[in-house]
Design a protein around this nucleic acid. Structure first.
Length: 322
DNA sequence: GCCCTATGTTAAA
DNA sequence: TTAACCTAGGGCT
């Protein structure tokens, strides 16, 4: 699935192209039809991402919660007023871009006939959005939506989302700074209480919301942390540095529409930056590390593939203090 | 066409 | 720990 950065991009996209507009909501596939009727014809009043989940608020106080899961994807289209038409979701192959294609050209005649399994379709006067293959797509009350969000850990992109809202005249800089500080503090505190390996903890959406398999592998490499180290053996200072690194590379992901975690000095001079030179360890098993002589290791852990460099991410020799 | 894979989560065993 | 779920693309026969 797209990791948190993609969902934050989606939240911005919905805000930009549908914000304040009345939407026709349907389910060409049929599976979402009863819930779609609850928000059909309502105005979109908010668009928010928390980790990998998207929350769209409507004028009748109902909330559409969407989780793309492993395969879900949104596709968009519309006329010249429908800026940023794009398709953001699960890349179908390594190296696929999450960036928007060229602007729509030609006459806009409304959304196309649905092809395949379109779970939900949102249509405004100027464009449309189709949702396919989500793990979750449901209409909730505000209380239910708050309950869903309460299960999620701090989001490294909380400040980025705040900056976007600030530019739209919502919120204050002071509130954003406070939220970002609180998120970081909470992350550090939660890690300190967990004995689970740090590589597992980073994938726990209740501990930290938005990091997935690529960011997990890449940030642990960048911070020289052994993925099997118990979370509570990481010093508070290293936990803070880990948070800062996650914030940094995920902010880049929001900006770029793709995950690039390599520092410029560490990229090979051969081939483009992305995807060949975008990662340190993800899907680089058996290849030589970019920084040392070791080969990148791969092991299946809890059903997900974990990549790391045994040379750059050595086992801690002594117990760190917190 | 068939099999495998994928930046994910949940429930059953 | 395993299976199930949702979808599309690539490589294979």
């Amino acid at each position: 699935m797209p990791e948190g950065h993609s969902v934050h991009r989606l939240a911005r996209q919905f805000d930009d192209v549908f914000g304040g507009q009345v939407l026709a909501v349907s389910s060409p596939q049929g599976r979402f039809t009863p819930a779609a009727r609850l928000i059909d014809g309502q105005q979109l009043v908010s668009s928010h991402a928390h980790g990998k989940q998207l929350f769209l608020g409507f004028g009748n106080d109902l909330v559409l919660r969407v989780h793309l899961g492993l395969y879900g994807a949104w596709s968009f289209g519309g006329d010249e007023h429908f800026s940023g038409a794009s398709s953001i979701g699960a890349p179908r192959r390594v190296g696929e871009s999450e960036q928007a294609p060229a602007a729509y050209q030609g006459q806009y005649d409304g959304p196309p006939e649905p092809v395949g399994q379109v779970r939900a379709r949102l249509v405004s006067a100027h464009g449309w959005a189709d949702l396919r293959g989500p793990t979750a797509c449901e209409v909730l009350t505000e209380v239910q939506a708050a309950t869903a969000r309460a299960k999620l850990g701090p989001d490294p992109l909380v400040a980025a989302a705040g900056a976007f809202n600030l530019a739209k005249g919502r919120g204050t800089a002071a509130d954003i700074a406070a939220a970002a500080a609180a998120a970081k503090k909470e992350f550090i505190a939660r890690l300190g209480k967990k004995k689970t390996p740090i590589g597992t903890a980073l994938m726990d959406q209740g501990l930290l919301a938005g990091v997935g398999n690529i960011y997990r592998a890449e940030t642990l490499f960048r911070c020289n942390i052994d993925p099997f180290m118990p979370s509570n053996e990481l010093s508070a200072a290293r936990a803070a540095a880990l948070w800062d690194d996650i914030v940094s590379i995920m902010n880049d992901g929001v900006r770029d529409g793709k995950i690039i975690t390599t520092r410029p000095a560490d990229r090979s001079g051969v081939g483009p930056i992305w995807p060949e030179n975008a990662y340190y360890t993800y899907q680089r098993q058996h290849q030589q590390c970019r920084l040392c002589d070791a080969g990148i290791a791969l092991m299946e852990v809890a059903g997900r593939k974990l990549y790391w460099c045994p040379g750059c991410q050595p086992k801690a020799r002594k117990r760190a203090t917190r």
